[in-house]
Simulated assay, not measured.
Amino acid sequence: MRGAGEPWTGDDRSHNDFCHARWRRLQNRSTTQADYREAWYDAQCGGCRFWVALRGEIGLDYGACTGPSSPFDGRVRFEHDGCECFAARGDGWFG
């Protein structure tokens, strides 16, 4: 439990589960879609140079898009989502 004046860390399992269920409905690409392309597996948000992970437990799956050409610039995205503006990270890191 956090004290008064302490920043929110995103480490509340119940809250995070609720957010995850709500935010998954906003996905641009889902691996469960029938038309999901094989090439998209290697072009997911978590591997994009413009994806910045959130902090705390919720940051294990979510981050902010900072891609200036992306329609999702400035929005929270699921690490396994993606868009046409994907730019691979130079270090090969994911998530």
Score class of each variant (00 low, 15 high):
Gln33Met: 02
Gln44Ile: 12
Phe72Pro: 00
Cys83Thr: 05
Ala53Arg: 07
Asp11Met: 00
Arg13Thr: 03
Asp12Thr: 09
Glu38Met: 04
Arg55Phe: 15
His15Val: 12
Gly46Ser: 07
His15Asn: 03
Arg24Thr: 08
Phe50Pro: 01
Phe18Lys: 12
Gly3Asn: 11
Arg22Trp: 03
Gly90Tyr: 06
Pro71Phe: 13
Cys48Asn: 03
Cys85Thr: 08
Ala43His: 15
Asp91Tyr: 01
Tyr36Gln: 11
His20Gln: 04
Asp81Cys: 04
Arg55Leu: 09
Glu6Phe: 09
Asp42His: 14
Gly63Phe: 00
Tyr41Leu: 14
Arg22Lys: 12
Ser30Lys: 05
Gly10Arg: 12
Trp51Phe: 05
Asp11Ser: 14
Gly46Asp: 14
Phe18Ser: 08
Gly92Pro: 07
Arg37Leu: 11
Glu84Phe: 02
Gly90Val: 04
Arg29Ala: 12
Phe72Gln: 13
Trp40Pro: 00
Glu57Gly: 08
Cys85Pro: 00
Thr9His: 06
Trp93Tyr: 13
Ser30Asp: 14
Gly95Met: 03
Arg89Thr: 12
Phe18Tyr: 07
Val76Ser: 02
Tyr36Ile: 10
Arg24Val: 07
Ala87Ser: 10
Phe72Arg: 14
Val76Cys: 10
Leu26Ile: 13
Glu84Thr: 10
Cys65Gln: 02
Arg25Gly: 10
Phe18Val: 07
Ala34Asp: 14
Gly63Glu: 11
Glu38Trp: 03
Asp81Phe: 01
Cys85Asp: 11
Trp40His: 03
His20Phe: 05
Tyr41Val: 13
Ala4Trp: 05
Ala88Val: 03
Arg75Leu: 07
Cys85Arg: 05
Phe78Glu: 03
Met1Ala: 04
Thr66Pro: 02
Glu57Cys: 10
Asp81Thr: 14
Cys65Leu: 04
Cys65Ala: 04
Gly63Pro: 01
Gly59Glu: 00
Met1Pro: 07
Gly95Lys: 01
Arg25Glu: 14
Glu57Leu: 11
Asn16Val: 10
Phe50Thr: 02
Arg29Leu: 08
Phe94Lys: 04
Cys19Ile: 09
Ala4Tyr: 14
Pro71Gly: 15
Gly56Cys: 14
Gly3His: 08
Ala34Gln: 11
Asp11Pro: 00
Gly10Met: 13
Ala88Met: 00
Trp93Gly: 11
Asp35Asn: 10
Ala64Glu: 02
Trp93Lys: 14
Ala4Lys: 13
His80Val: 01
Leu54Met: 10
Gly67Trp: 01
Trp23Gln: 08
Phe72Trp: 11
Gly63His: 06
Ser70Gly: 13
Arg89Val: 02
Asn28Glu: 10
Ala4Arg: 07
Pro71Met: 15
Ser69His: 07
